[in-house]
Design a protein around this nucleic acid. Structure first.
Length: 402
DNA sequence: AACGCGTCGCTGAGGTAACG
DNA sequence: CGTTACCTCAGCGACGCGTT
């Protein structure tokens, strides 16, 4: 396989322009970069830029934009996106334009190679980091980076294969989104809007739906009960808001010892308990504690609800709770000037939950689980298509594809 | 004139203290 | 003890200036 230095395959890089506020020239920034090589046009700024510069630096379809400055410890600089747009666009100073020489290299092919360069961490060797911001040594990168270079026709084939693989994973992503929408609409289909309750279900307060009011409806320990000093290396887990956010129970930060745990036993969570985030941006996000979750207690920012599932099923509660209409009435009505907080307990205890017959709830629960199973399959499929894309990328990168 | 190089303010996230 | 509001931390994206 022939290899060529990147320098020989692109024109002299075109640096970006900041411009000044208030103009009408569209400028692409690193904000517009996605991690998939695609430009996100949803948030393009308009700037004032000298006409001569616009003419000399204007992007052309097939250009590759590379991120020179920015990044983070987890994400090296050197990300690339593909420009494929007829409009007048410039890019900003944190980026540079690499314009492929069309007679030597197929633009989309080069994009994928540079994309994998970043993906597999090679751009990391060309970083300059003193403090904070990270800069890409673009000249060195261009002079040193070797690109496997099959004939143009082969390059086109490779790009087409990667395009296909990319399409596949995008499809899987869409499928997952569809399943998510499906569970949301299922609740409305079966039970209607829980606030207006047009279907005239019986309603009950949360107090009537939990096992016993004293231990089943509990906010985490306040005041000095959970100070950093009492935390130990390992032991009983302190559940925090992030556990409730994405149903993610894999993270663990703080632990308490057995003595403390026994003191605070009233705040303990068991599998099937529901934990609800009580403040901040993620107010009201909730999760069902899974079987096998680590033993522990909730912190102050969480509310624990242990339902009597012969009356109300966990799944039903979760979806009732996440309905827009419920959230609007219950949370927004109580939102003051400060940061959002869970409304007063007395209001929560009064709030009417619709309570359809348990067999309908069971049906709902079963259907949700069926959809979740489908979604899990789609997620597996996504993982596979991601793997496929990456392995193809790797092969292309090594010059082994086609 | 263009390039390379650093840092700081904003804001999202979310845990924690003060207050009644 | 329950409610309300604040504080901290860290990620992230912006620009201007000295140097080539």
């Amino acid at each position: 396989m022939i290899e060529k230095v990147l320098k020989d395959l692109v024109e002299k890089p075109i640096s970006g322009e900041w411009g000044t506020d208030g103009g009408d020239i569209k400028v692409l920034r690193t904000t517009n970069f996605t991690n998939e090589g695609i430009i996100d046009y949803s948030n393009v700024v308009l700037r004032n830029i000298d006409e001569r510069k616009v003419n000399s630096k204007k992007l052309k379809p097939g250009d590759i934009i590379i991120e020179k400055s920015g990044g983070s410890p987890k994400q090296p600089v050197g990300r690339v996106v593909y420009f494929d747009n007829e409009g007048t666009y410039l890019c900003n100073n944190f980026t540079s334009v690499l314009r492929p020489k069309g007679d030597r290299v197929f633009s989309k092919y080069l994009l994928y190679i540079l994309f994998s360069n970043h993906q597999f961490g090679f751009t990391g060797n060309f970083q300059n980091k003193t403090t904070g911001i990270i800069n890409l040594q673009l000249t060195r990168y261009i002079n040193k980076t070797k690109i496997p270079l099959p004939p143009l026709a082969t390059q086109k084939k490779i790009a087409a294969i990667l395009d296909e693989a990319d399409k596949l994973r995008q499809l899987d992503k869409k499928l997952i989104e569809k399943y998510e929408a499906l569970t949301q609409s299922l609740f409305l289909d079966m039970f209607g809007d829980p606030v207006t309750n047009k279907k005239d279900w019986e309603t009950k307060s949360i107090v009537e739906l939990v096992k016993d009011e004293k231990y089943s409806l509990k906010r985490g320990p306040f005041g000095g009960a959970l100070k950093k000093e009492i935390f130990v290396e390992d032991g009983y887990l302190v559940y925090e808001q992030f556990h409730a956010l994405n149903n993610d129970f894999s993270m663990a930060r703080y632990f308490i010892d057995e003595k403390k745990y026994n003191e605070l036993i009233g705040f303990a969570v068991k599998p099937k308990d529901i934990i609800i985030s009580c403040s901040g941006v993620y107010l009201g996000k909730l999760a069902i504690v899974p079987g096998g979750a680590k033993e522990g207690i909730i912190n102050q920012a969480l509310l624990k609800v242990t339902l009597d599932e012969s009356k109300m099923r966990n799944d039903f509660f979760v979806f009732h709770f996440t309905q827009d209409s419920f959230r609007r009435t219950f949370f927004d009505a109580n939102r003051g000037a400060g940061i959002p907080n869970f409304p007063p307990m007395k209001d929560f205890k009064k709030f009417p939950f619709i309570l359809p017959p348990i067999n309908l709830q069971n049906q709902f629960s079963e259907r949700v689980q069926a959809i979740e199973a489908q979604k899990a399959q789609a997620q597996q499929s996504l993982q596979k298509s991601e793997e496929l894309f990456n392995s193809l990328l790797q092969k292309a990168f090594k010059g082994e594809l086609v």
